[in-house]
Amino acid sequence: MKPVSPFLELDETARVPVTFDGTPLDLPQGANLAAALLVAGVDVFRHTPVSGAPRAPFCMMGACFECLVEIDGVVRQACMIDVTAGMDIRKAHEDFRGAV
């Protein structure tokens, strides 16, 4: 994660706590999860199961599946989900990395 995110946010919205890979973050309630993570400075959402290459959101419209994260044990598209309080978010398929 970078100290300054490559993205900035125009709106001010009430924030709620979530965790990303165990690190606590405060994200805007009801915001698009992928957008909120990018603004929070998360630049790698997952590593590919094929080569372990880092990936992050690409299309923001639910078509590319690059923004996959794991929430409550289910792998989902971050760009298709709204932020809610207490989300436990993890990089998708990360337990693969040892295996590759």
């Binding site: 199961p49 094929v50 792998v75 398929h93 337990d95 693969f96 295996a99």
Partner: peptide
Amino acid sequence: EKLPKLINRPSLIARQVDEG
């Protein structure tokens, strides 16, 4: 989707392929 090791040996019901 590709998953970490979950199934050890194949059966007629399911098998985990080499790609995961």
